[in-house]
């Protein structure tokens, strides 16, 4: 049994806008172990990115606030840390990779400079030592000829290389937990395959736990050990990746997996989920998927289903599941 790095319990994050309270994350619980990749899958606006930002406490202030729950990282609740203590945690214990490699690097600094920044901040090393660390971070991400690459500017690199540099910055202090928010979405298919293989390698050598946020089931299948499927601010089903694919229980998970076109099958009409997710401003009292669900019962519209463990950590929130 490997060590649990991150334990999120009943996290609630809301945005307060003119139109009212937007419950972006509404009672989410999950955990990430050492050497494990936990996937958070869902469609846009389901709250997966907000969950990621909440873990770093980097919500856009003052509109976004964590209003309840616990985030236990390496044994302590980071919601109780001061802002200063939190800064020491970011980059060192948790770090994050953002989606777009084109905008997450600063164009006016060299790649080496940008990696060195976080190393200097957290490790207080002297100059030559810093350079060694920078090179080792680039090497970890398998960037060829790192000694000369550190003097390059981001515009001199291709998209795939840039995304590796972003990865090198995130991994430079060897964090315990890496949050990757759609890191492969902007990349081409063959580059994506390289990137995923690379991260599997990194995980083997550094023991890092990865929270992988994505909408792409193909990437989930290749990358993640366990998956949480999010819908309208809640996790509706959590299970190991193979269970999610082979034995999905929540009707949303089933529908979502069925609506992904498969390369292996052909010409069958695609399964589609009609309608739209509910507005987070005005959530229904019962199950959030009720309005689009094909197995809906009266109870579903009235009461929120509880999360039920059906064995081996397979958690489902659905009244149909006993």
């Amino acid at each position: 049994m490997s060590r649990t790095i991150l334990q999120v319990e009943d996290l609630h994050t809301s945005f307060y806008t003119r139109a009212g309270e937007v419950k972006a994350v509404d009672g989410v619980s999950f955990h990430v172990d050492e050497k494990e990749t936990f996937g958070l899958v869902g469609e846009s606006a389901c709250g997966k990115t907000v969950t990621g930002l909440s873990l770093l406490r980097l919500l856009p202030e003052p509109a976004g606030r964590i209003v309840g729950g616990k985030i236990i990282l390496n044994g302590r609740n980071i919601l109780e840390l001061s802002k200063k203590e939190m800064r020491a945690v970011r980059g060192k214990e948790i770090s994050m990779i953002l989606q777009d490699p084109m905008t997450s690097l600063n164009p006016v600094y060299t790649v080496g400079n940008q990696i060195a920044e976080s190393i200097k901040l957290h490790q207080g090393l002297r100059d030559e030592k810093v350079t060694d660390e920078v090179i080792s971070a680039l090497r970890l991400l398998k960037i060829p000829a790192p000694e000369s690459r550190i003097r390059d500017y981001p515009f001199q690199m291709s998209g795939g290389m840039r995304q590796r540099v972003v990865g090198a910055i995130a991994m430079s202090c060897r964090p315990n937990l890496l949050i990757a928010d759609e890191p492969t979405t902007a990349l081409d298919a063959t580059i994506q395959a390289q990137y995923i293989a690379l991260f599997q390698d990194i995980q083997r050598t550094t023991n890092v736990g990865i929270l992988f946020i994505t909408h792409d089931f193909g990437v989930v299948a290749k990358m993640c050990h366990r998956v949480g499927v999010m819908y309208a601010g809640r996790i509706v089903e959590t299970a190991t990746t193979s269970k999610i694919f082979k034995d999905p229980r929540h009707p949303y998970t089933v529908a979502l997996i069925n609506s992904v076109p498969r390369l292996e099958e052909k010409n069958k009409r695609l399964f589609s989920i009609e309608g739209q997710p509910p507005s987070l401003l005005n959530l229904p009292p019962g199950c959030r998927f009720a309005a689009r669900c094909d197995k809906v019962m009266d109870k579903c519209r009235e009461q929120q289903p509880p999360e039920v463990d059906i064995g081996d950590g397979h958690l489902v929130s659905c009244w149909k599941v006993k």
Partner: peptide, 16 residues
């Protein structure tokens, strides 16, 4: 204080 009591606070105080 990052987890304030929701009931006691008005919306304006949240929006800062």
């Amino acid at each position: 204080s990052i987890i304030p009591n929701v009931k006691e606070k008005t919306r304006k105080q949240y929006t800062g």
